[in-house]
Amino acid sequence: MSTASSLGIALLLGVAFGWLLERAGLGNARKLVGQFYLTDLTVLEVLFSALVTAMLGVFWLDRLGLLDLRAVYLPETFALPQALGGALFGGGLVLAGLCPGTSCVAAATGRADGLAVIGGLVLGILAFNSAFDWLRQIYASTPLGPLTLPELLHVPAGIVVGTVTAMALGVFAGARRLRVQP
């Protein structure tokens, strides 16, 4: 596929992604942050239904021979830095009320706080780059290569897929209950 069509596809997919994020209300920091005070569970509902949909789609397309998983990029696992990064990210998320993707949604719909988060992201990346020499050891530590849960747990992929689906449905049931009793 040519670069031009690949970038065109990127744009179109992005438009769909951004549209849906805004539709769900995730461009609004107050709504998003409500997740962590359990007053608004949209984040969990959207994130996990998207994850489960994509996971099931990938599993079955692969099994039906319609998708070659070997051609799909699987990010590599770096256990320690990703755990550390996740913790920092989560802390920042609660302060900012928006994540990198949703900050663009917010900014595009007129919210100046979206722009502020974007500014902060750039500053954070600059700080990381400047301090890279000190951070490098942690950054590159515990490399496990492209590793999936089925491989790690020695469990067939379909079983992991079914379990994750069940877990997500459980979370949704819990979310429903929380919605009903405010």
Partner: peptide, 9 residues
């Protein structure tokens, strides 16, 4: 918050 997320990401 954005800066923290930038480093974390």
């Amino acid at each position: 918050g954005g800066a923290l997320m930038g480093v974390g990401a």
